[in-house]
Amino acid sequence: MEMIKVKNLTFEYIRRDEEGNVESINKAIDNVNLDVKKGDFIAILGANGSGKSTLAKHINAILYPTDGGVWVNGMNTAEEKNLWEIRQTAGMVFQNPDNQIIATVVEEDVGFGPENLGVPTQEIWERVEKSLEAVGMLEFRNSSPNKLSGGQKQRVAIAGIMAMKPQCIVLDEPTAMLDPNGRKEVIATVRELNKKENVTVILITHHMDEVIYADKVFVMERGQVKMEGTPREIFTRVDEIKKYRLDAPQVTELAYELKKAGVNLPDGILTVEELIEAIKLIKK
């Protein structure tokens, strides 16, 4: 069974005027299909307004499909009885680090989820400690969130989700408001959780350098999935990516330009090391 299954999902925003008549219908998601296996690291790329966040909110049952369906670990998100189990199974981290931390002390915030689930006190403490440890924030357990950097705040938010023992984490542009160091911190944390705790990860972003480690990348535009494949497959098609208001990591673009100029490089170079190796091969 897939961890997440999205089938023919369509979602329409209906705008009404003051009298309640339908003014316009906007298809935010247009017939999307998506399968995510347990333990996968999936990245969803897309420009602002491409529908990627709307898709994420369906996985957490914050929004419900207009048409089609979403299943989390076999549970249909449209059925109300599944609501809390779905939210516990697929935790969600949001963009703005300030607006998702509830408590004034780090450890109390991490405990918020388990408290809501009715976990016994003793176990809450164990979970909080383990989650903070997993994101490398244990030493800050008694700090005020206001004193932390953006990257640290996001790691606390991730710990807050981990304490609910989810099988899957959906991260909705978790790095959009962070500086490069904060971004690195968060992505490294997410990768580690994926590897060590075998948590399924769905990362939504428009930063290209964050997706190169993903197992699979989906590119969205205007509510549709336009490209899907491994990062290498996706970044082989730099021109197409640019069409969807995105770009490629600088080194990928450099390799792509060199290839266009006739240099015999392999497809989809993602890192500096790969490019160097390829050039070395040619020089031999």
Binding site: R87, G91, N99, I102, E108, F112, N116, L117, T121, M164
Partner: peptide, 22 residues
């Protein structure tokens, strides 16, 4: 944002809630 984040973390009022620091 906060309301959404709280719901995503299964907040549903005081009933059935346990306390980390009772």
């Amino acid at each position: 944002d906060l309301a959404m984040a709280m719901e995503a973390r299964c907040y549903r009022g005081g009933d059935g809630r346990t306390k980390m620091k009772p």
